[in-house]
Design a protein around this nucleic acid. Sequence first.
RNA 1: GUGGGUGUAGCUCAGUUGGUUAGAGCGCCGGAUUGUGGAUCCGGAGGUCGCGGGUUCAAUUCCCGUCACUCACCCCA
Length: 416
Amino acid sequence: MLRSIKGLKDILPQQTPQWRYMETLAHTLATQSGFSEIRIPIFESTELYARSIGGATDIVEKEMYTFPDRDGSSLTLRPEGTAGVVRAVLEHHLLESPSTRKLYYLGPMFRHERPQAGRYRQFNQFGVEAFGTEDPLMDVEVIALLWRFFNSLGLKDLTLHINSIGNSQDRENYIQEFKRFILPKLELICGNCQRRYSTNPLRILDCKVPICQEATQDAPTLFDHLSPESASHFKTVLDGLTVIDIPFSMNYRLVRGLDYYTRTTFEITTPHLGAQSTIGAGGRYDGLVALLNGPSTPAIGFAVGLERVALLLSQHLSTPHPPLFFVAGFGKDAKPMALKLLHNLRETGIRADTDYKSVNLKSLLRSADKLGASYAIILGDDEARSETAILRNMTTKAQESVNLKEISQKILSLTL
RNA sequence: GUGGGUGUAGCUCAGUUGGUUAGAGCGCCGGAUUGUGGAUCCGGAGGUCGCGGGUUCAAUUCCCGUCACUCACCCCA
């Protein structure tokens, strides 16, 4: 049997209503907060991702779907959304207009990881990016939008973890000190972390291996090494969250995996998803726009993993369909009339269907029942002769004869 | 990339201490006097027992390999 590619999955009819619900909510909430939708390509030049995400990260090192174009240039399926949005923003000068500095997107991302619960090789993200201000209240606004999205979906037991990793200078200073601290313990920590010592020392703090956690127990915290500006920025963010009653949990060890993050970083977790507990995360990236040859521009954003959210959604979250009318046409003369009726109903805006496999009234009604029709419209040769049809309520079994000329209007009044 | 678990009908799973026609429930299709559905009863279709090899008179069952799915490590949304 032909199967889908490993780590990819179909979203089946039973699930699509929930997806629409999530997506609609994302559009609504983002728009309410003044964000405009942007749609960008799902692949870009490899260089864009390599430069923005960081060469020493796992994403760039081993998780990208990279392939040569026919002219030999290297392309990559997008592993995340921010880099592409920044590229588009610069290419189309969106920073020039106040109305296009807050953007959101929805769409598939690709990472070649080993699949497991809540982790796929193609997965969908809802993300927002706000450019051009370093006001900490923008941090609050972005986090509040993320929080509100989850709340509106009825998600429970969520924790907002938050930290500040400072600006690049703060981090540089801290890294020096942290390296001095960890150097004597280098033999104790895991091999992965020994490698990180030279590539990405901050991630040692985030390591889940017990010996590493122990080794960094008394490490100096980045939090204590923030510059006065970064510290005051962070304090204003926390105060702002308090003002609007968003509970948070300080997490000094929270270091995000992408190189471009600065200052505020945050992550929302759930205890109900096994190992993949993060359902949304983000932070500031004040240096990225400049890194991609744009004007020095502060920015902040988040991304939500929609597959993970979908796993948490209650099955009841779906938009109900309008009532279905089943046209049961049978008999030589009646069938063409039934075809015309079905077509007319649909043109009138009524949800209508039939079943071409069923040939007698019994099997037609059975099909009507299986399809969940609210009404069946019976049109046999007897009815055809008098230009009428029988309108049957499938739940009450009440039925009446209706003139074919009036039936669309009659049905329209029923659906209101 | 590394480890664990699982692969029998469309779905959920039994089963065979190795033995000849492999089962159930649900679902699907049909019938119960010919133009009235759902319930009930009856019947039917549907399986290379993941794939390949080995042991054996005999393998779905035991052994080896392989693939797929899954969970976890890692990493991240």
